[in-house]
Simulated scan of single mutants.
Amino acid sequence: MRLTDDQLTLRHTVRRLLAASPPDLWQRLVDLGAPALLVPEDHGGLGAGLAEVYTVQYELGATLAGTPLLSSVLAATALPPGQTLTAVAGGTVAALAWSAPDQATGRVTGQVTGRVTEQAGRLTGRVTHVLDGDTAEILLVAAGDTLHRVDPAHASVTHTPALDPTRPLATVDLDHTPAEPLGPFDADRVRDVACTALAAEQAGTAARCLELTVAHTLLRRQFGRPIGSFQALKHRMADLHVLVTTAESAAMAAALADPADLPVRAAAAAAHCAEALRTVAGEMIQLHGGIAITWDHDAHRYLRRAHGGGQLFGTPAAHVDRLARLVGF
């Protein structure tokens, strides 16, 4: 299980781009084709797959880059062929307001909550925690098994204060709002792709947390020695290394999965990567000592990303329950 040479080239290209920290990062990613990865070539896309999404999301996670790429991935997965899909491939920011009910209980899992009903071509309801909802030019709303497009000017979209300031969230309120039906909406497919893309990001974030922590323990000295030379800290960082590498493997396994295996692998990746990042980010705080609890250090940003992302498309416990049902337990 490994990336191809082309995928590794994409990884290095994105990594160099992020290292340069350009002010127009999203436009540079659009020029690179990032939002077009899952869009078919005959609609202006690259016709790539989840492995390429994994490659880009991993690097974005390592730098905590605040881009609407995850929203674009959801939109590209949900949309049927048409002009809207072509616009998403070209970098137009799209937000998907949806909720994914648990098939066993009927309850909505995760932060994406709400219920939207359709009557006579108009939508009514509220969806919370919509990624990039307040800046999107295209607003997609799922009502039952149908995907609709709504003019953002006709909906009430309000910014939601979030734990992670690099991930804008919004609440979408609809009150008999006119909507254009676009086609069927496959919530299960969207959820599996969302979990796979988020797991890739979390794996990249966890790897960067460990990298920064190891670097700190080699510089910070106590009793005349780098604290990283202490056996107790070596053991803790070795355990974190295991978590990081297994998170990378779980996320890559989902990204490279056959369509029939994707639900199982996406659930496993969602559960493990979220927990791995939460643990590694927490240990990052501990091993950095007092500086990590100040605003001057970036450690709190990684911890915020860990806790915010860990709830986004369902909690780890919810994904474990789903995984157990999928494999027959």
Rank of each mutant, 00 (worst) to 15 (best):
L3R: 08
L3Q: 12
D6V: 05
D6C: 04
D24P: 00
Q27P: 00
P35E: 14
L37V: 11
V39K: 07
G44A: 06
G45L: 05
A51D: 07
E52F: 02
V56S: 00
V56W: 05
L60P: 01
A62P: 02
T63R: 10
L64D: 06
T67L: 15
P68M: 15
L69W: 08
S72Q: 13
V73E: 01
L79D: 03
L79I: 02
T84L: 15
G90I: 03
T92Q: 13
V93D: 10
A95T: 03
A95K: 01
L96Q: 06
A100H: 12
P101F: 05
D102R: 04
T105H: 02
R107K: 05
R107Q: 13
G110D: 08
Q111K: 01
V112I: 14
G114H: 07
G114K: 04
R115V: 07
A120M: 10
G121H: 03
T124K: 03
V127W: 14
T128R: 14
H129I: 00
V130C: 06
D132S: 07
V141H: 05
G144W: 07
T146V: 15
H148C: 03
R149K: 10
R149N: 04
H154W: 02
V157S: 11
T158D: 04
H159I: 04
L163S: 12
P165G: 07
T171L: 12
P181V: 04
D188C: 02
R189H: 13
V190T: 04
V190Q: 03
V193I: 14
V193T: 09
A194T: 06
A197R: 08
L198G: 03
A199Y: 14
G204Q: 12
A206I: 11
A206P: 01
E211G: 01
L212K: 08
T213G: 07
H216W: 15
T217E: 15
L218I: 02
L219M: 03
L219A: 11
R221Y: 11
Q222E: 14
R225Q: 15
F230R: 02
Q231P: 01
K234Q: 12
H235A: 05
R236T: 11
L240G: 07
V244C: 12
A247N: 04
M252P: 00
P259A: 05
P259G: 08
D261Y: 11
L262W: 11
P263I: 09
A267K: 03
A267C: 09
A271L: 11
C273L: 07
M284A: 09
W295Q: 10
D296N: 06
H300P: 00
H300W: 11
L303M: 12
L312M: 13
G314K: 04
G314I: 10
P316H: 13
L323V: 05
A324W: 09
